[in-house]
Design a protein around this nucleic acid. Structure first.
Lengths: 143, 143
DNA sequence: TTAGTTTTAGTAATGAGTACGATTTAAGCT
DNA sequence: AGCTTAAATCGTACTCATTACTAAAACTAA
């Protein structure tokens, strides 16, 4: 495990700054995302860690995923009634994704439609936006 | 009730074509959406009809909302873990929305980012996309 | 009106996500 | 290293949205 030890270490360090402790489970949770680089649901994460931590509780998974997302370590979205998370691509760089609905794998879309929206937003206090393209990747298309 | 009888009648007619029957509850469900022109959750709909149909079951609501959405009478989306529906704006015209997260009211965005996406989608079979801008409308901002 | 189908009420089941007390663990201090 | 305390975890129970099921009622078309 751990094709990207540096990035996980950076993430752990960032958490430490904020006062979060470095636990084995947290590290392993982050490594699942660092290794996969795909959108994963809580259940996917449980599945990925079931050998190492057979009784890993949902409380632990959900709480940590929220903490990670809150501090920018993971990107969060939801589709088909489930929250999904993925390792943050490159720190600070705003972007969007093409997402495979089956496996969660993504491809980056650098352009942001907000840059060219001409609609009048007067009166609205804008707090965020979502632009995602959905489909099936080469591998999942075949199956 | 029924500020938009024409549109509701058209919707009912469309359903009839497909073999669905014209029932009072279906009509009233559609009228809630025609009157509101906002994104509403199943619970919002139940609330809106609780006087006329105190015991309206969720089965009825969800089943009909799905039927409506499936045949293009309603637009469907989800945020904050809930499915939301709104009366389809203008038949056939592709567009997006600015959405108030509190009351579901919308403003149209005519431009579609898909028209100018330059990312290579080779390998991906694209099935759909989502572009939504979130915020708070004038009324909800105050409160 | 009658036959046949659709719809509905009422309720139960499912599944994602959240909450909480008791126990365990990490990290800082002496 | 041992002590302290604040955080993390487990195990479980709960909430909430959504879906599923069955008997009964309502509707359409002939």
């Amino acid at each position: 495990m751990g094709q990207n030890p540096m990035t996980v270490n950076q993430a752990i360090a960032k958490l430490k700054e904020k006062g979060y402790k470095n636990t084995d489970k947290r590290r392993d949770l982050l490594e699942v995302f660092a290794d996969e680089k795909r959108y994963l649901s809580a259940k996917d994460v449980q599945e990925a860690l079931k050998n190492k931590y057979p009784g890993l509780s949902f409380d632990t998974i959900y709480r940590n995923l929220s903490v990670f997302a809150e501090h920018g370590l993971l990107e969060e979205t939801e589709w088909e009634g489930e929250k999904k998370f993925r390792f943050t691509c490159s720190a600070g760089h705003h972007h969007h994704h093409i997402i495979c609905l089956t496996c969660g794998v993504t491809r980056s879309v650098d352009a942001c439609p907000m840059d060219s929206v001409s609609t009048n937003m007067e009166g609205f206090e804008i707090t965020g936006h979502k632009f995602e393209i959905y489909g099936y990747c080469t591998s999942c298309k075949k199956a």
